[in-house]
Nucleic acid binder design. Structure first.
Lengths: 163, 163
DNA sequence: CTAGCATGTTTGACATGTCAATCGTCCGGA
DNA sequence: TCCGGACGATTGACATGTCAAACATGCTAG
């Protein structure tokens, strides 16, 4: 790093080789981490990360039910993605959809006993996996730094999104 | 953080609320970053991240060709994933598969002129996007920390994989 | 020589994701 | 009233991923 053009370094040029190396390490490793977590969740609980997110949101909801759009907002998914996923989860008996009492256009998504049971059984193993694969891999300072890095990336992403 | 059971803190228990918050920030943000990068690549070059990885590997290869299994190893994909992806890329004219001269079982994957052209055109915008969305979001110390975090996670993942 | 396992790759079935189009209901103004 | 757009959700077409099974050829023990 550090060719002799300091004023052109920031925000203008392509990444250096070192920056690119870090980028690749970072993105590939987070990918591997994600996929390892997903596979443990699958093996230990027969749930996908998507299933888990939906079940978590419903478990925390009043009456274990949410309007479809609220659910989408809560977990940050596009409507159509959620709709497809709910279809699959409904086939497996994890959730149930029924017409909303107050708005005939809308749908209420309900947690079924089967779904609640599946979620209960998955929580502890999943949290344990997060601890083992993420938290335990890092020193306390690294963990703190990871939080700050995430925050910085998020702010930057959101800022660029608005532009 | 920090209940009064210091000897049970490490490696045994579930994550604390703070650890869990960091985990969620971290994984959700890296996901958002990945998907933003993918969408820019798509818009700017009509390529998916998978396309880019394949084209990059072939571009760097001797004679712009690789055995299918070497390619899979190089980019870290499962064989079947690569096979499906190559099928799609072949339909679009980005690569070509032909029987390997030295081993009739094997397949050689060749970069086509179309594929080479697409890759050339995508490189600069893609690297610029990495710079803008990742490198520029972080301070130099954070960038260094990101590299160290990735390395630590990787080592930990690999260690647990062997167990 | 040949049965059977190893090797290299593909295939099929299905889960997951995105995008654009569709469908039904609601609502405000001519 | 009724029309057109807003709103809530689903659908279809297709890209991407995983897993297990299938295929074809190579190699080796007997």
């Amino acid at each position: 790093m550090t060719r002799a053009t300091p004023n052109r370094r920031r925000g203008r040029q392509l990444p250096t080789a070192e920056e690119l190396r870090i980028w690749r390490d970072f993105i590939e490793t987070t990918d591997a981490l994600r996929s390892r977590l997903a596979s443990r969740l699958q093996v230990e609980s027969s749930l996908s990360p998507g299933d888990y997110a939906v079940l978590l949101a419903l478990s925390e909801a009043q009456d274990q039910q949410l309007r479809s759009s609220e659910l989408a907002t809560h977990i940050g998914w596009e409507r159509s993605r959620l709709s497809h996923h709910l279809g699959r989860m409904e086939r497996r008996g994890l959730i149930r959809r029924q017409e909303c009492a107050t708005d005939p256009r809308g749908a209420e998504v309900h947690l079924t006993p089967t779904g609640a049971e599946a979620f209960r059984g998955s929580t502890v193993p999943h949290l344990r996996a997060i601890r083992e694969l993420f938290v335990d891999a890092l020193t306390p300072e690294q963990l703190r730094a990871a939080g700050e890095i995430a925050a910085a990336l998020r702010v930057h992403l959101d800022a660029r999104h608005k532009e």
